[in-house]
Design a protein around this nucleic acid. Sequence first.
DNA 1: AGTGTTGTGACACAGTTGTGCTAGAAAAGT
DNA 2: ACTTTTCTAGCACAACTGTGTCACAACACT
Lengths: 201, 201
Amino acid sequence: MPKTIDTAARREEIAEALWAVARDRGVSAVSVRSVAEEAGVAVGSLRHVFPTRAELIQFSAELMTRRVEERIKAEASRPGDEPAESALRVLRHLLPLTEESRAEMEVNLALFAEAPANPGIRTVRDAAYRDLREVCRLVVRRVRGCTSAAFGDGPGEDEPEARRLHALLDGLALHLLADDGERADAEVLRVLRAEIEALAD
Amino acid sequence: MPKTIDTAARREEIAEALWAVARDRGVSAVSVRSVAEEAGVAVGSLRHVFPTRAELIQFSAELMTRRVEERIKAEASRPGDEPAESALRVLRHLLPLTEESRAEMEVNLALFAEAPANPGIRTVRDAAYRDLREVCRLVVRRVRGCTSAAFGDGPGEDEPEARRLHALLDGLALHLLADDGERADAEVLRVLRAEIEALAD
DNA sequence: AGTGTTGTGACACAGTTGTGCTAGAAAAGT
DNA sequence: ACTTTTCTAGCACAACTGTGTCACAACACT
């Protein structure tokens, strides 16, 4: 048997190269060639792992949401101190507050925007949407003391609050992209903190 | 003097063609040629009015925000009945609830996402951001009874509430793009109504 | 009717795009 | 050492991109 590379790892490297291209030169600059160059591989090698452009794009989008999800899950499963504080710590990870997560968010938005035209992206987006809503549900229940329906993951009676938190979160994230600077960061965090405190009644 | 066409009108027609292309085939399908064909004019004619692609894109973005702004202004200047009801009526116009405004929002988002790479779009986006924030400020003051600082348009003490309303609004709009259907529409409106009522204390 | 400006449409050109194809390099098995 | 399969790297092609150029049609004026 011949030489074998770690296909999964290679795919992730290339996906990260795609993010870099999208971040630095805009989504419209994402092409098989530009991504391959950024990743430091030949186009042929890239196409060995992603036979077609659509697969490349879709995988990159999937990986992005998966990374965010892992980050959230890791933070959420930490030993819970005060619920409100813990909630804020979790939700912070969904805001573009660092240079890295800012770039991430920009790519995320760009892919999101491309969804109407790309069915593959669309399913990724929809899954991410549902997952984030679920995170919001959990946070809402946790903050509200909430022994209610302890593990019914379905859309319980906290649904309006979850929807609201979800929307607020995405809205704040969006605004941090347009309105950068430390002042905006601080104000956004204040709004988020207030929302969580209001949730606890 | 030779034949003269209504340049302004022609530009708007072409911009609308751009929206249609972006909506139906995605932003990546927007090219001088595709837009010209959609508008039913020759590339040369298009380029007579938009010498370069960048100008075409930028104008289309500007026109979009201008249209929304006009719609809002028209609604806001209607004789004010109950403040809360009036506020809801105004803010509805910022949500993609109709097929038309949904397409509008999709294009808006796509252009928004392209901003990091395109300085021209960026200034349009920033202006739209500021304007919408101002609308939110006015709504907040109006709903809160609010004789306070009657015409200070600066960021008064209601700033956190305005920022929050603004974020919530954009978040809800974003979600309506991913989560269509009448149920989502109704729930989003409920969340918005609740926010306005909470604002009035 | 003539004239000069404005709008139109076509062509060309250099660059980029995605993808098909193929020849060779690399390495794990015998 | 040989074979076999994976991987790499490049070429080629047709389609598309933005833009420069230019001849011509259309029309408002004198």
